[in-house]
Every structure is written in C-alpha cells, then in structure tokens.
C-alpha cells in the first residue's frame, strides 16, 4: 500500500492531503482543484463567484456548478442547524472588523454595502439549468468554514472517482476522509486543545467521515479597542459570547461537521452535549476556563475525565 502526503496553503489555511494508493496525478489534481475552489468561493477575491454575487445588483449572476452546490449546501446547513449556521452575516463580520484576509491583508472583502435584515440564505434563487444565481438586494454571502468542509468533501470524492483507494483532505482542520485508510484500523485524527498550542486533547479513529473544529480563540483581532473574533451569533448579530473556546464535531461529511461545529459552539457549555446528542453527533468541547465536554462515546478518554 502506498500512502502519499502533501501540505500546502489554500483558503488562508494549511491544507493537508493524504492519498492511499493514489491514482496518477492525484496530489497535483487535489491541490489544483482546491485552489480553483478558492478562486470561486473566496470573498476576498474580486473575480470569485461569491464576490460577483455580493456585488450584484438585482441581476442574475452566472456562476460555476461548484458554487451552485455551495449555495445549496449553505441552505441545507442552515436547515440542519436550525439557523445557527448563517452565511448572510457578512455585514456583521465587516462591522466587527473582519474586512481583509488574515492570510493577505491586501485582499479585502469585495461587496456592495449590505445591511438588509429580514432576508436569509433561503431567499437566494438558484437557476440550475442556466447555472446562475439571483440574490435579493442587501444580501451577501460568506461561505466561511463551510466552504472548506465542502471543498474537502468534493475533492475527496473526486480523488476516489479518479481511482485512488482512499483520501483525506484537510483545510485548516476542516476535513473529510473516505475510502481505504492508511492504517488497518482507520483514519486517525488528532484533536488539538484550543487553549494550549502543542497540547492534544485526544486522538480519534474512524472509517471515514467529516471532522471540523470551530473556535473563538483563533482568528481574533483588535477592532475599536476590543478583541473580536470571527464567530457571529445570528441571534445577537454580533460576535458570539459563548463560553466555549472550541468544539470539534465528527459528522457524515465535512460540511456537516463544520456547520454543526458552528451550531454547537454557539449554544455554549450548557447546551453543547444536548446539541450533539440531539443531532446524533460525536464531538468534544472546551470551555474558556479549560473544562472539557464530550459526547457519550468519547467520555472514556482519561484526559477528558480528569478535567
């Protein structure tokens, strides 16, 4: 069995691709494809589908089929999380100061001013046959982490379709794995402690699926004299005040893991276990004071019990 790994930067994150018994050109194709998806989905690139949608003024915008899938996935994620995942909070993100790419501050959000309340991602109209999109005035889209999770899903499926035996694609820790794993027992994922660099919470193993971590301690910045972060609460329309520092969720797909990680961290420590249980998910959360919460099937871990 041959296993090939590759690390590179994409979507302002570290990408990690693992391919088992790779088809010819698998690694190169995966990297090229992830960059292509970034070109289509980044809100910091003027020519991306998302930027052109966000700049549109009551007109149909021609987009790639990838972007149609992305928007349909956004709508599905909103439903699955009861609205906790909301990709239309761009105005609030900009108000909070997240106006430029963390990777490259010269890249700024490309959008008209957006301030329209009372509309949702479900009001975006998709025209599949013509591959075009119409958004109501005042609505803008920010794929956020969902784009990374979905990108991992798409690329892994494409790698397998091209003949590779197994594949894992991780973009900043939002990942999806499927097919034959590199070990006899499964794909292994290390969940890092959101509060301590170089400290791991636990290692999990599965036959395949999606994993994502949502954190309020990464991607922080100073704005108007206060510390802000990228997690906007749709109910307050401001930076979340959750007492959770991070939540890692395992789900069937990368995009579902990402959407539910966002949903789980927003409910806070009082509701995170119920949230995971009611959605049939595996996950672990860490509070800002260092306590840990885990779904029932992870509670045997000594580290978590000790905390």
């Amino acid at each position: 069995m041959a296993v090939v790994e590759h690390h590179f930067r994409v979507m302002a994150s570290e990408a990690h691709v693992i391919v088992v018994d790779p088809a010819p050109g698998a690694i190169k194709n995966a990297e090229r494809r992830l960059h292509q998806l970034e070109q289509r989905w980044s809100r910091f690139l003027g020519g991306s589908d998302i930027s052109r949608i966000n700049m549109s003024q009551e007109e149909w915008v021609p987009v790639s089929s990838d972007t149609l899938v992305l928007i349909e996935t956004m709508q599905a994620a909103s439903v699955e999380t009861d609205g906790r995942f909301d990709p239309t909070l761009m105005h609030e993100l900009l108000v909070a100061g997240y106006t430029a790419s963390i990777e490259d501050p010269a890249r700024v959000s490309v959008t008209i001013d957006i301030s329209c309340m009372g509309l949702s991602v479900h009001d975006v109209i998709l025209d599949g046959p013509r591959s075009q999109v119409w958004v109501p005035p005042g609505l803008a889209l920010d794929p956020g982490g969902l784009g990374k999770g979905l990108a991992a899903d798409l690329v892994v499926n494409e790698l397998l379709a091209d003949g590779s035996a197994g594949a894992l694609v991780s973009i900043g820790g939002d990942l999806f794995a499927a097919g034959r794993p590199p070990t006899p027992t499964g794909w292994q994922i290390v969940v890092e402690d959101p509060l301590e660099v170089d400290h791991d919470l636990l290692t999990i193993e599965f036959d395949g699926g999606g994993v994502a971590t949502s954190s309020t301690v990464s991607r922080r910045w100073q704005h108007d004299g206060s510390t802000r972060h990228h997690l906007i609460d749709p109910t307050s329309r401001d930076c979340s005040t959750t007492d959770l520092a991070g939540v890692t969720v395992v789900a069937a797909t990368g995009w579902q893991a990402e959407a539910h990680a966002t949903g789980a961290i927003l409910v806070g420590s009082d509701g995170v276990i119920d949230y995971l249980r009611s959605n049939g998910l595996t996950g672990v959360g860490t509070t800002l004071d260092g306590s840990h919460f885990a779904s029932d099937n992870l509670n045997a871990r000594p580290t978590l019990e000790a905390s």
Partner: peptide
C-alpha cells in the same frame, strides 16, 4: 449538497 446519512463510528485511541 453532498449528503450522507450514516454517522461515522468514532473510536478513541
């Protein structure tokens, strides 16, 4: 959207 219904079985190692 890519939709899989079965949730992964996760083991702690």
């Amino acid at each position: 959207p890519i939709a899989l219904t079965a949730q992964p079985v996760v083991r702690v190692v």
